[in-house]
Design a protein around this nucleic acid. Structure first.
Length: 290
DNA sequence: CACATGTTGCTCATTACGTCA
DNA sequence: CCTGACGTAATGAGCAACATG
């Protein structure tokens, strides 16, 4: 879990971002965006990378599509996580678990020959056991994600080999990671919009009140004939006219509105900045439980 | 050139598992 | 020990972009 990850000093800053290259909000530009992988058509691997990496391995990731991934153990030396995981179950502390997990995975890997793609073939009931990634695996994936939040086949393959995972697992991790990022961003955006809404409501209330006051003044013109003259004059920043800030005489009407307008702008523009999500990834800090 | 088909990778919604309080 | 909540790996459907015939 996140807490555990954190307790291992794993502080990977998660830059939230529009994961999507197409729809990346300006505020999220710190999301490392592609030098190498622009919103390039996916199957450019065919043209760009196809010759670099001729495909059995890559195909293993993609041919898995639609097939039960766990049974598609084409990837060299990597067995299904399923069987590995079964040994992980049982409640230990995370550190133990990680070791166990790693050991289990490693053992599984070494023990499982490449040909034995029926790792779950024997027990199809064990079809969907979950492999918990080790700390190191998560860390490497996270670092890679920070560099670029999408994968090209070459990177996928390289990562898979480096981490002793199946390419499909790397792919899934990135997909889920993008989903988490997006979710976090949505939450941040939601908060921002809520704040905007609150401020607008407040401003609206204030303006309504002001309109009522002005109407009242209009109905009783004799009132402001006897009002005190403005005590202080200030410059309206928007129209550069002077106005009083001490009374509600007609002279202040414009300025009041102007001030309201400018304050409104301030409310929406300056005071409330669109939040730039930073480091909201669970690795950075565990999401506290209630 | 327009079209049908296949491939690939993506998002989205959901499920299932592992862990913890 | 049981249980519910939570995080996350994994799955499947559907879509878009592109290549190919």
């Amino acid at each position: 879990m996140g807490e555990k990850d954190d307790e291992f000093g794993l502080s990977l800053s998660l830059s939230l971002g529009g994961v999507n290259q197409q729809q990346q909000p300006p505020s999220l530009n710190h999301m490392h965006q592609p030098q190498q992988q622009q919103p390039v058509p996916m199957n450019h691997n065919k043209t760009l990378f196809g010759d670099l990496f001729q495909l059995p391995a890559d195909r293993s990731s993609d041919m898995v599509r639609g097939i039960d991934v766990n049974s598609a153990a084409e990837y060299d030396g990597v067995s299904s996580p399923n069987s590995a995981v079964s040994s992980v179950s049982g409640g230990g502390k995370q550190s133990e678990r990680d070791d166990d997990n790693a050991a289990a995975v490693a053992g599984e890997r070494t023990s499982c020959s490449r040909g034995s793609d029926d790792d779950d073939g024997g027990g199809s009931d064990a079809a969907r056991k979950k492999l918990r990634l080790t700390k190191e695996q998560s860390m490497v994936l996270e670092e890679t994600f920070k560099e670029h939040n999408t994968l090209n086949p070459k990177r996928k393959q390289a990562l898979a080999e480096e981490l002793n995972l199946k390419p499909r697992q790397v792919e899934v991790w990135f997909q889920n990671r993008r989903a988490r990022t997006k979710l976090k961003q949505t939450e941040v955006d939601c908060e921002y919009l809520k704040k905007c809404c609150e401020n607008l409501t407040e401003e609206n209330r204030r303006l309504h009140k002001e309109v009522q006051e002005l109407r009242a003044l209009k109905l009783s013109p004799q009132m402001y004939m006897h009002m005190n003259p403005p005590t202080t004059l200030t410059m309206c920043p928007s129209c550069e006219r002077t106005h009083s800030s001490a009374s509600s005489s007609p002279a202040t009407i414009h300025s009041t509105v102007a001030a309201a307008t400018s304050s409104n702008c301030k409310l929406l523009g300056a005071n409330i900045r669109r939040p730039v999500p930073v480091n909201t990834w669970p690795f950075e800090g565990p999401i506290p439980r209630p």
